[in-house]
């Protein structure tokens, strides 16, 4: 097994390249994915290497893209569908939730639907309302669908390979701000998968547990470094997958610190942070020295465009520091 330095985008592209090379059942489909190589170039070069039967340009028809991927999966292929932006998963929601997620259950295990839907999500890139959304909470409440949010290049590759190998549908949400800004060591090779449903401790600490995922992992790590100078020691847990959720890791970190700050880029009400808070309240109450705290975006319909408004929307290291400081003092 070798390790190379890659951006998040390179790791994702490499995972698709290798999955296509290793497994004849894998196909890639989506808007602009073949000739152009994807609007973010996540599929760059795949058409040239694997041909038009396995790297497929699809029309602007998101329900069609996901529905076609379902049909392919029913015949035994392992489709990896790209939805150009997570904001455009909405036209495909019936296919994702009513069809893919429910196929195994509704057929009593006779059919299954091994497909991956990749979608760039997240704000802080001046993408405004329809190129910045965090949509995970719409998908985490339907059992039958797995939801993955990698935060490092290594995980992006390993989790994507695990998602492609998984026998059930997986929504794979890639934070577009991290695509090129994040570099890191990536273990390559066929065995280097990261199992779904296992969280990672990114930084051990004694005082407050930060439980988060996606780009907020990095904001939290920045906040932790800064607060260390003030003598506040943060632990940072990266959930990596929201479904299945690593409840053991959530409860274990609360047991260690007695204080939980859940950080989410999504808005507060009905967001996935609420589910984490509920798990801690139900199963970790006796370990708490302070109330569970959620730090999330304001309850507005989406990320606004103007820089001042976007900054006001986004959770940042500075906001995390303020919240963590308060919680440590409680």
């Amino acid at each position: 097994m070798t390790t190379t330095e890659q951006t998040l985008l390179e790791a994702i592209r490499g995972a698709m390249h290798d999955a296509l090379a290793w497994d004849a059942r894998v196909v890639v489909l989506g808007e602009d994915v073949a000739v152009k190589g994807g609007v973010f170039l996540a599929t760059d070069g795949l058409l040239e290497r694997f041909g038009a039967l396995r790297v497929i340009d699809m029309p602007i028809a998101e329900a069609g893209i996901v529905g076609v991927a379902i049909g392919m999966a029913l015949h035994g292929l392992r489709p990896v569908a790209e939805i150009q932006f997570a904001d455009y998963l909405y036209p495909a929601i019936d296919q994702i939730l009513n069809e893919a997620a429910r196929m195994r259950y509704r057929s009593n295990g006779d059919w299954n639907c091994p497909l991956v839907i990749r979608a760039p999500f997240g704000g802080g890139i001046h993408g405004a309302l329809y190129h910045s959304q965090s949509v995970e909470a719409l998908f985490t409440s339907t059992p039958g669908l797995k939801v993955v949010v990698p935060a490092t290049p290594h995980d992006a590759r390993g989790l994507l390979l695990a998602a492609i190998a998984d026998p059930d549908p997986v929504l794979f949400l890639e934070h577009k701000r991290l695509y090129r800004t994040l570099r890191g060591p990536v273990a390559t090779g066929q065995g280097a998968t990261v199992p779904l449903g296992v969280a990672a401790c990114r930084r051990p600490g004694r005082d407050v547990s930060i439980i988060t995922y996606g780009a907020m992992v990095h904001e939290s790590l920045r906040a932790a470094d800064a607060l260390a100078h003030e003598g506040v020691d943060l632990e940072v847990i990266d959930l990596r997958t929201l479904v299945p959720l690593d409840r053991d890791a959530v409860l274990a970190t609360v047991r260690r610190t007695g204080r939980a700050l859940i950080v989410s880029e999504d808005n507060l009400t009905g967001g996935f942070a609420g589910e984490i808070a509920a798990v801690i309240a139900e199963h970790g109450f006796a370990d708490l020295d302070a109330p569970v705290r959620r730090l999330a975006a304001p309850d507005v319909p989406a990320v606004p465009f103007s820089e001042t408004l976007e900054d006001a929307f986004m959770v940042s290291a500075a906001k995390i520091m303020t919240a963590a400081r308060e919680l440590a003092r409680y």
């Binding site: 996901v66 529905g67 991927a69 049909g71 029913l74 429910r102």
Partner: peptide, 20 residues
């Protein structure tokens, strides 16, 4: 192939099967 109750949602599966 198993279907849902959602009217018209299944034709795309037929298209995907044909693609496969």
């Amino acid at each position: 192939v198993s279907g849902s109750s959602s009217v018209g949602s299944h034709l795309v599966h037929a298209v995907g099967l044909a693609f496969a």
